[in-house]
Design a binder for these strands. Structure first.
Length: 791
DNA sequence: GCAAGGTC
């Protein structure tokens, strides 16, 4: 049998492939159940079936449709089934594959594309009527040259690559479905109120919750700045060249010294700076810029998709920020010349050479987003117009010239102190003229000469305050998700929309709702990676290994299921507690201190093994911590986050001080004593079920490395591993009186310990003076605070 | 009524 069947990922790509391979002589065939394109070359007939992404969807067998706690383990242990969701593609593949001797997979050249291709092959193989060659075409752009090259140099299908995508698919479903069902059932939130958990959505919610907690527990610090207005032609302002002052009286003293005195120029420099033009749009950058002009990511993507299917812009889902050489940029500018951007397009064309900017990311799947056609008058709605204009202006500005500005800086001495001044002026706006979404303000600064005396006025001290971190807005949240590799260019906006629709987050900038807060708190009550971005990072690692053939898909999915079963077991044990925590059960507790913002009492409410710390003012502090022990107030505030410090008293153990904020570094830095020698995780101080403290690996249940700890004395971090067995060393004792030891009881250093007690003491003294690890975390937090001047 | 990933 001759004849070839080509399979494309989407209609648009299919049309272009058929067009180029047939020199424009292809025919679209469509009937009730079939959809394909037919064409011929000199010797063969071709059929092309365009897909629409995945043809099948995985699901659980129908008998597991009901949500029940008792069947969760069965759910995890069962095999998934595949449901066809694109019936037309299914029928077209089965019927056309009967008549051909060769199949060429021409889906997008990436992991999901490979899986989509093998889904099609599975369908064909199951029909049992195809016995021929199967090949893969690899192209990086939908241009004539790329496509023809790809089809004359076909390669083999990469089954390892598609297996890696399949593992992702299954792991996401097992974890997502099992945990979603568990949390919904445990809290009795069913029907449309269900609580969803997922590898991407939950860590994203976690980011938002964490940020909100940082804001809640932020303690502003005052600082003072000394400023002078200098006058030459106009006013320009000098700032005291010294670290910002934390001491008002010192600022006042400096002010006394300079008051009424003019300035003398110590140095002056003037330089031209380039204003770099922006890089071509990828999906993330496009959504960020759109949200700055008031079109939120989901809406921006919907509009972009609609512009794309109408042929006005290129494919909107792309990571690429470099125009391929094959794109005829100039011809597009010429099209734009006949649009409302006539002036801007002419500016671009008037250049001797058009040199496009390049972004950091260069991928082969799709081009960056750019306009491909000019819309007819009245064709677009208002928002669509706005988005199209953004894309078109961005495109033109990447082809125009860079801007330049002149920057001036001076050091000016007044009353024995040096003040810094600076200003800048745009000399040539360049691309800024085409791209009005970016504005650069001029700041006046005159020309000066060294030794020149400048008149001064308005000597003053301005008070400022450190600011908490900003909430995420749509733009920065999408960017952060991209940084952490959470989701893909095509899914990030959907995930955010899900979190909104399910009532976990609200507003822009985004805040967690009480439900969002308590869901994350509930999840954190049990050790699992599900609320952390690490889960994705680990999955990515495993996928890479599957793709390279190092491990099998089956083994990865199997071990992930085993881990999930252990997590479910742990969840089951804590079911009531989680239910209460998530539902925000109201119980009365004991006051442990006063809120430093509202002055209202903060209560410690005991719910089984968990303590809820809640401020009486609603919407303020509300933390959950798993603590087995008694809570005593201390009247101290946390040196890191300013919240209340309480004492935990456990039977047989030295009391421990903790910050009521579970995420505070005050707690986490003390708990983390070093690196696990087994798998590189963190060895954390934990409490066993029987009330004993011990060291356990943060990767539990995957890693079961533990060490026993002495129950008496404070435990401090040494920051070094044992030379003999690599376990992290710890410092145990009371105050200054402590000793360094290896927690590994079977380590050879412990065998000698009793014998050489005297030498050991000497070692201890030295390391004790070095052990300031817990302090550094506090100062780190401070330096992270943003400084913003007032006025 | 579950996830995340394709695409429309």
């Amino acid at each position: 049998m001759s004849g070839t069947l080509i399979i494309s990922e989407k209609a648009d790509a299919g049309r272009r492939i058929a067009y180029f391979l047939s020199d424009g002589k292809s025919k679209q065939k469509r009937s009730k159940n079939l959809n394909y394109i037919e064409f011929e070359d000199s010797k063969d007939g071709f059929y092309l079936v365009p897909l629409s992404g995945h043809i099948v969807e995985i699901d659980f067998p129908p008998k597991l449709k009901d949500w029940k706690l008792e069947t969760l383990n069965t759910l995890v242990e069962s095999e998934v089934i595949h449901n066809v969701k694109n019936k037309t593609a299914y029928e077209s593949l089965r019927s056309l594959s009967e008549n051909v001797g060769k199949i060429i997979i021409a889906t997008d050249y990436d992991r999901e594309g490979e899986l989509i291709g093998t889904e099609a092959l599975d369908i064909i193989k199951k029909s049992g009527k195809f016995r021929g060659d199967i090949k893969r075409a690899k192209f990086s752009a939908l241009t004539g040259k790329e496509i023809r090259d790809a089809f004359s140099n076909v390669i083999d299908v990469d089954y390892n690559l598609s297996s890696s995508a399949e593992a992702r698919e299954e792991i996401d479903l097992y974890w997502g479905a099992a945990l979603t069902r568990f949390f919904s059932l445990a809290t009795n939130r069913l029907g449309k109120n269900f609580l969803s958990i997922g590898r991407v959505q939950t860590p994203t919610l976690g980011l938002i919750v964490k940020r909100e907690r940082e804001i809640q527990s932020f303690v502003p610090e005052k600082f003072w700045e000394v400023k002078i207005d200098y006058v030459k032609d106009d006013i320009f302002t000098g700032l005291l060249k010294e670290d910002r002052l934390n001491d008002q009286s010192k600022a006042q003293k400096i002010l006394d010294m300079i008051l009424g005195k003019d300035g003398k120029v110590l140095s002056f420099r003037k330089e031209m700076e380039r204003i770099y033009k922006p890089s071509p749009f990828n999906t993330t950058e496009f959504m960020r810029e759109a949200s700055k002009i008031g079109v939120m990511p989901s809406r921006a993507m919907k509009i972009a998709e609609s512009l794309y299917v109408r042929g006005l812009i290129s494919y909107p889902r792309t990571d690429n920020t470099v125009y391929q050489r094959s794109i005829n940029l100039k011809s597009i500018v010429e099209k734009l010349k006949k649009s409302f951007l006539e002036k801007e397009a002419s500016m671009v064309l008037s250049q001797e050479r058009i040199l496009p900017s390049r972004g950091k990311m260069e991928t082969t799947d799709h081009p960056p987003i750019y306009p491909t056609e000019v819309p007819k008058q009245g064709m677009l709605k208002k928002d669509e117009e706005k988005v199209y204009e953004l894309i078109a202006r961005r495109f033109l500005s990447t082809l125009y010239k860079e801007g330049t500005r002149e920057a001036r800086h001076a050091d000016i001495e007044t009353g024995g102190y040096t003040f810094e001044t600076s200003g800048s002026k745009v000399v040539d706006p360049g691309w800024l003229e085409i791209y009005p979404y970016r504005k650069i303000r001029d700041v006046f600064h005159p020309d000066l000469e060294v030794g020149e005396i400048v008149k001064a006025e308005n000597w003053r001290v301005e008070e400022g305050e450190t600011k908490p971190p900003n909430r995420y807005d749509m733009a920065s949240l999408i960017k952060q998700m991209e940084n952490l590799n959470l989701g893909t260019k095509s899914t990030r906006h959907d995930i955010i929309e899900k979190l909104q629709n399910r009532g976990f987050i609200e507003g822009n900038p985004v805040r967690p709702t009480p439900l969002g807060f308590s869901l994350i708190d509930g999840i954190m009550l049990v050790d699992s990676k599900i609320s952390e971005p690490d889960m994705t990072a680990e999955l990515e690692n495993m996928m890479t290994k599957i793709a390279s053939g190092e491990v099998t898909e089956k083994s990865v999915v199997e071990s992930s299921k085993q881990m999930l079963l252990r997590v479910l077991d742990e969840l089951e044990k804590n079911k009531d507690l989680i239910a209460k925590s998530v539902r925000g059960a109201l119980e009365t507790g004991a006051e442990v201190g006063k809120c430093r913002i509202h002055g209202t009492p903060i209560q410690a409410i005991k719910i089984k093994d968990t303590i809820r710390f809640k401020c009486d003012t609603d919407g303020c502090v509300d933390y959950y911590q798993k603590i087995r022990g008694l809570i005593k107030p201390t009247e101290e505030n946390c040196e890191v986050c300013g919240n209340i410090i309480v004492q935990v008293i456990r039977r047989g153990q030295t009391p421990e001080k903790i910050c009521i904020n579970p995420l505070c570094e005050y707690n986490t830095s003390k708990k983390d004593v070093g690196i696990c020698p087994k798998d590189g995780g963190h060895m954390l101080i934990r409490q066993s079920r029987y009330g004993k403290r011990f060291l356990g690996c943060s990767n539990f249940p995957k890693c079961t490395q533990t060490y026993a700890l002495p129950q008496k004395g404070e435990i401090k971090v040494v920051g070094k591993a044992c030379e003999s067995c690599k376990a992290p060393l710890i410092l145990v004792g009371f105050g200054e009186n402590n000793r360094e030891l290896c927690p590994n009881l079977s380590c050879e250093t412990n065998a000698n310990r009793k014998a050489s007690k005297t030498t050991e003491k000497k070692v201890v003294r030295k390391s004790a003076s070095k052990s300031k690890t817990s302090k550094t975390s506090a100062s780190k937090t401070k330096s992270r605070k943003k400084v913003k001047s007032v006025g």
